[in-house]
Amino acid sequence: MINGEKVIQQPIRWAMVGGGRGSQIGYIHRSAALRDHNFELVAGAFDIDAERGKDFGVNLHVSPERCYPDYKTMFEEEAKREDGIQAVSIATPNGTHYAISKAALEAGLHVICEKPLCFTTEEALELEMLAKAQNRVVGITYGYSGHQMIEQARQLIANGELGEIRIVNMQFAHGFHSGEVEEQNASTKWRVDPKMAGPSYVLGDLGTHPLFLSEVMLPNMKIKKLMCTRQSFVKSRAPLEDNAYTIMEYENGAVGTVWSSAVNAGSMHGQKIRVIGSKASIEWWDEQPNQLRFEVQGQPVQILERGMDYLYPQALADDRIGGGHPEGLFEAWSNLYTRFAKAMAALDSGEEMNDVWYPGIEAGVEGVRWVENCVRSADNGSVWVDYQHELSPSK
């Protein structure tokens, strides 16, 4: 159980790029990172407007001289300090992630980046090589994977409770962009701009979330081939899609689907994952994150509750407030930031961290790779394509 006691010797000196005033995701990053005293916010380049960013940083109790006009200046100036930053979180539009991540790694910093990590597998593999060469952690904020019941699902599958895995059904399909909301919403506007969002909208922005949940639960299942169809129901978003269906075949013979959509009118969030085995199935829905459906063939449905003693120890290790109390997104992100901190501290001290998983550089690479394969399939007439593991814009 997590109770706030230190899990690393000293808080990691930490900064943010982006996440300034008005950024919802910035507040989630800070709340998660600071909750367990694993990180200390000491610097930031919070806004493209330097004065606005400085004013915001001061209101977060960051020293004025450590509120920088841009990330390049921050990395240069912090490197001169004995108490300079050790890690940085990147909460900026997608099109900036690659350049900032690369600069941070070259500066010797650990990186926590919003997804997608970048736009092409070629860029992602370059960042992976750089992270390994620098011996730095790159964490990707697949925040839903920090929910306690995701770990319970992982352990149920690993222990054979479901039997042979046959089907994985995934979706992230909300309805908030069923109309042309980007005309009044700046944070949506860049998401449907190929220059800032990259080669996809909902495939990368939404579909990669349940995809990573499946990777956590089923770490040994690899995609063999896939077929994708994508649509722009709000026509002004073309060539980017606001709805997509992906069908996948895995190397072990299992099949999977991902429905990615921002036009599922009336749906609040609609993120679900259902894993079906030969003996039983499990289902998790992020709008009811404290429960996991466990359905054994021929038996009554079981609703497993977060924080209860019957869960696996690995799941209970992520518990914060005991059974019966609802936990939510902030707790999930805090669990993720705790994992990042442990990994960073271990690398810095030369320790092994074989018993702790987190969405690292490999998860970032795989998310980019999956989107590229989906786009390749959809743009070639929604055909089956062999799952290529190294793709670039020219392929």
Results as ranks from 00 to 15, higher is better:
348 D>Q: 14
158 A>V: 05
128 E>G: 02
376 R>Y: 07
288 Q>R: 09
227 M>T: 01
387 Y>G: 08
160 G>A: 09
34 L>R: 05
307 G>H: 10
223 I>P: 02
63 S>I: 03
380 N>G: 12
269 H>F: 14
143 G>D: 01
369 R>K: 11
289 P>N: 10
52 R>F: 00
59 N>Q: 13
151 E>S: 03
35 R>L: 13
355 D>K: 09
29 H>C: 10
369 R>C: 12
10 Q>W: 00
135 N>D: 14
60 L>P: 02
222 K>F: 04
20 G>H: 05
213 L>E: 03
168 V>M: 13
326 P>W: 02
181 V>A: 08
214 S>V: 05
300 P>M: 00
67 C>R: 05
259 W>C: 13
305 E>F: 01
27 Y>P: 00
270 G>N: 12
297 Q>G: 00
355 D>F: 08
228 C>S: 15
289 P>R: 11
104 A>T: 08
393 P>W: 13
8 I>D: 11
327 E>C: 04
375 V>T: 07
330 F>S: 09
393 P>Q: 12
197 A>W: 05
116 P>I: 08
231 Q>N: 14
81 R>C: 10
353 M>G: 00
228 C>Q: 06
264 N>F: 13
133 A>V: 00
8 I>E: 06
52 R>T: 12
124 A>G: 03
173 A>T: 12
154 R>H: 15
64 P>T: 04
119 F>Y: 14
355 D>N: 14
287 E>L: 05
120 T>D: 13
111 V>P: 03
376 R>W: 08
126 E>D: 15
172 F>R: 14
324 G>A: 08
205 D>S: 14
342 K>P: 00
258 V>C: 15
11 P>S: 12
314 Q>M: 10
196 M>H: 08
94 N>E: 03
114 E>D: 15
243 N>P: 00
187 S>W: 04
152 Q>W: 08
367 G>Y: 04
335 N>M: 06
316 L>K: 15
301 V>M: 10
14 W>S: 03
143 G>I: 07
89 S>G: 11
351 E>V: 01
173 A>C: 11
199 P>V: 06
109 L>G: 01
350 G>R: 06
228 C>F: 07
58 V>N: 03
343 A>M: 14
55 D>Q: 12
186 A>N: 09
40 E>L: 03
276 I>M: 14
384 W>C: 03
111 V>Y: 07
60 L>M: 12
30 R>P: 02
89 S>N: 09
19 G>F: 08
146 G>L: 03
354 N>P: 00
38 N>Y: 01
50 A>K: 12
167 I>E: 14
28 I>L: 15
151 E>A: 14
101 S>T: 15
5 E>L: 11
129 M>D: 15
10 Q>H: 13
264 N>C: 11
239 P>I: 10
368 V>E: 08
157 I>D: 02
51 E>S: 13
384 W>S: 07
386 D>L: 00
131 A>W: 05
118 C>I: 05
238 A>E: 12
117 L>D: 06
178 S>Y: 10
232 S>R: 07
299 Q>N: 09
337 Y>D: 09
159 N>H: 15
241 E>S: 03
322 G>R: 08
149 M>A: 13
168 V>N: 03
279 K>N: 04
227 M>E: 14
252 N>S: 14
349 S>H: 13
56 F>H: 08
68 Y>K: 02
311 L>Y: 00
329 L>V: 11
285 W>D: 15
113 C>W: 04
33 A>Y: 04
181 V>N: 05
350 G>I: 10
